[in-house]
Amino acid sequence: MAMVSAENRGLRLAVRYAVLTLVAIIFIFPLLFMVMSSLKPQAQLLADTSSLRAFLPVGDISLQNYTDAFRRAPVVTFMINSVLVTGITVLLSLAVCSLAAFSFAFLEWKGRGVILSVILATLIIPFETIAIPLLLMVSQLPWIGWNGLEFGWLNTYRVQIIPWVADGLTIFLFVQYFRDLPRELIEAARVEGATWFQVYWRVVMPLAGPVIATAAILKFLVMYNQYLWPLIVVQQESVRPVMVGLGYFFQLNTAWGEVMAYLTVITLPVLAFYLVLQRAFIASIASTGVKG
């Protein structure tokens, strides 16, 4: 009986690993295709697409596509723009949304339930429906810069950052996480004379690592993949982000190797960011049940 059970366990384990391996392959193959294709000349790349050779570093392999991609478009400028816009937005978003969520979770004030519901309701509004009104608004907004008061935010970093700082999903994530924290911790801090900001900064935020990681990664992905918004508010190449820059590679005769090289390069920051935060991200998914 014990032998049968051990065999069953072994079989189950084998099936489980087989399924996991299959899923891993399904997820890894597009990335593998991208990287391998970025190393091949156009004719070979097209010829290989119909066979397993597409996933292998075989044939005429070189970094020529990377050289050509960097010549075709200001890739470094686009990447700096995207990393800058994404990085600042993520930091501001974590600060603003966590403060808002703290208020909703711990402070007693009239109407907070209604306001939180309204904020959460914004989750169902597609961005496309507010893009044009937002465009009209930001094109007239004032700003005090080096040249004094000026109107219009178009063609700037701020127009790519500020409208995206606060969002319903990030606030929701923080609220959910904060509500699960032991109330005794908050009450103890308050009894010992801590101000609400001290409670937020010294008690709550140090415990919020997993949700910070989750919110940061989700925000990072949203911001790094921005296309429609920068397309309509940014006309100058100097502030253009990576996804709009992808359009530089689609010509009448598209050089697919260069497209793949560009995609490989712009994927690196996303992978790096995920690798840094992956432990906290997985922990947060396990605890909140939210995934990107």
């Binding site: 465009l135 397309l231 309509i232 006309q235 010509q251």
Partner: peptide, 13 residues
């Protein structure tokens, strides 16, 4: 200069 595939959208915006 703009990428051709998004040029019209940029002009309308």
């Amino acid at each position: 200069s703009f990428p051709q595939n998004s040029y019209n959208d940029s002009v309308v915006a």
